[in-house]
Design a protein around this nucleic acid. Sequence first.
DNA 1: CTCTAGTTGCGAATGATTTGCAACTGGCAT
DNA 2: ATGCCAGTTGCAAATCATTCGCAACTAGAG
Lengths: 140, 140
Amino acid sequence: MSDVGASNLTERCRLAGLRITGPRKAILKVLEDSSDHPDVEELHRRVKRVHPGINIATVYRTLNVLSEHDLIERHSFDDGRTRYETIPEEHHDHFIDIDTGEVVEFVSEEIEAMQEEIARRHGFEIVSHRLDIFVRRRDP
Amino acid sequence: MSDVGASNLTERCRLAGLRITGPRKAILKVLEDSSDHPDVEELHRRVKRVHPGINIATVYRTLNVLSEHDLIERHSFDDGRTRYETIPEEHHDHFIDIDTGEVVEFVSEEIEAMQEEIARRHGFEIVSHRLDIFVRRRDP
DNA sequence: CTCTAGTTGCGAATGATTTGCAACTGGCAT
DNA sequence: ATGCCAGTTGCAAATCATTCGCAACTAGAG
C-alpha cells in the first residue's frame, strides 16, 4: 500500500486507451518517482537506468502523448527546454530561484479566487493558468 | 506630441550605448508600432516591409540585445517560439484565448500584492513574475 | 575625415524536438 | 493459448528555432 500512487498514473494511462509497454512502464515509473521538474534529457537519463535500451525519441513521444491526455503537465520556464511533472493532486504555482534554478511549489487560494474574479469580469472562463514567480533568496 | 513614445525606445537604446543603425531603426519602429505579441518570424516579416534586406539573424541578435538591456520583454507562452513586446508602462499579465490565440492584457493590484506577501513568507524576494491565464470566451 | 568597436549578412552550426519507416508487441478477439 | 494488427519503438534523417563564425560594413566619437 506504499506505492498506491504507482498504479495510479499507469491506470489512468490504461483508461485513456494507451498501451502499457515496457518503455512506457519505465517512463511512468520515473515520472511517478520524480518530485522535481526534469527536462526531457534528464528524464531520458533516469529512464535508461531502469530500461537501458530506450531511445530519447520514445521519451519525447510518450511525454507528448501523456500531456495531450492531461496525464502530465508541461512547463517552459525560461531556459529553453521544456520540463515536466506529474499532474499534482492539487494545482500549484512555482517560485523559481534565479540564482540556483531551484523550483519551489506553492498554493494560494486567494490568488486563485482573484483570477476567477478577473477572468469573469473580462468575459472569460479559465481553462488553466500558470504563475511563475522568479525570485532570489532574501539577504539574511 | 502624438508619437512621443516613438523616440522613446530609440532614445533609451542610445542611452544604453547601442548604435542606432538602419536595421535597428526599422526593428525599433516595428516594435513600437506593435501592440500585440509577435514572434521573431513575424517581426522579421514586418521589419522587411520597411527595411527589405534585413536578415533574420539580425532580428534575433537585436532582440537579444534589447531584452538584455531590459528595453523589451520576452515571453514564452506554450507554442515553442519566443514572443516579444515593448516594456509596458505598467506591468501586466496575460489572458490567452486558447481557441483563437488572442492575447489580452490585464492588471491586478491585488494579485501583485498577494504575490509579494507569499514570497515574503517563503523568504524570497521577487525579481519578476509571469501570470498567464489560458481562457476561453464565456458562452453567451 | 579617420578610425575602430559595434553591427550586419550570409551560410553553416547547434540544440531541441519531430518524423518516416520498417521492425516489434500489447492485449482484444478468437 | 494463439494470432492479428493498430499502437509503439528504435534509428536515422529531417525540421524548427536560434546561435555563431567571419569578413565586409558603418555609426559616431575624436
